[in-house]
Design a protein around this nucleic acid. Structure first.
Length: 241
DNA sequence: AAGTAAAACAACCGCACGGAA
DNA sequence: GTTCCGTGCGGTTGTTTTACT
């Protein structure tokens, strides 16, 4: 029989969960999601953990509104690759596929509505409800064709945290920046240095040279042992065992 | 100031793929 | 060669925030 604790949690992540996840990702890297989900004590699936990390907790993420350059780049790349969101995201440092997908969705919806109101203004009053599920993907022609220049944006403008969501992560006055600062001060992270094309994120300067050489030791840790890493309430880690 | 619509954001689900057993 | 498991991706939906009337 399943107790409440055995139930896999769903829904919004709490600050505590975030901190826990960040700590464990720092310890074990961002690859073994199932493992992290298990040893962290989070009653979440590995999938859920990964998603939370990739879309929200990753230190390289930008926040706030897309810049005009980014918007143009999205349009350009989508015209070229279609709904290859992850691929498009790789060309937009700090942006996630989810974010781009969401942007595109609202963008196309807006375009569709504009178009509709222009093409058939007489129908707009009687038929506008149908716009809810329209994804006129191909309807938005790429803006101009100055391809190459788009790929070399020379680093996108720093608009992070200036947007309306700069505050979104500051629930209870404890921002992700604060969390990262805490973690930076309390543990030595292990980033496996993976900087494949698929990851444009730039980590904050959190080097951990020592652990990179013997990652296997970490993977062989038992669930019991991993409990020693559970954080305190304030997000710091108990490393002494 | 309140209500409503639209936009933005966050998260889950199902499927596909690749690697290990 | 096959099966199983973990991970990544794209689609979709639910929730929250913002703008407008």
């Amino acid at each position: 029989m399943k107790t409440m604790q055995d139930e896999t949690r769903k829904g919004p992540w709490t600050e505590q969960e975030d901190i826990l996840l960040i700590n464990f990702v720092n310890l074990f890297g961002d690859r073994r999601w199932d493992f992290i989900a298990k040893v962290s004590g989070l009653n979440r699936t590995g999938k859920s953990c990964r998603l939370r990390w990739v879309n929200y907790l990753h230190p390289g993420l930008k926040r706030g509104k897309m810049t005009p350059q980014e918007e143009r780049l999205v349009l350009e790349l989508h015209a070229r690759w279609g709904n290859r969101w992850s691929r498009i995201a790789r060309k937009l440092p700090g942006r996630t596929d989810n974010e781009i997908k969401n942007y595109w969705r609202t963008h196309t919806r807006k375009k569709a509505q504009e178009r509709k109101s222009v093409v058939s203004p007489s129908l707009s009053s009687s038929n506008c409800s149908s716009s809810s599920n329209i994804t006129t993907v191909n309807s938005s022609s790429p803006p101009g064709t100055g391809d190459a220049s788009f790929y070399d944006t020379g680093g996108l403008e720093q608009v992070a945290s200036s947007g309306k969501n700069g505050e979104a992560v500051q629930e209870k006055g404890y921002s992700m920046d604060d969390i990262w600062r805490d973690i930076e001060n309390t543990i030595e992270p292990v980033f496996d240095g993976f900087s494949e094309e698929g990851c444009n994120f730039s980590y904050p300067p959190l080097a951990s040279p020592s652990w990179e050489y013997c990652p296997d030791m970490l993977w062989s840790i038992s669930v019991e042992e991993s409990r020693m890493f559970l954080p305190y309430d304030d997000g710091t880690m108990l490393l002494t065992g």
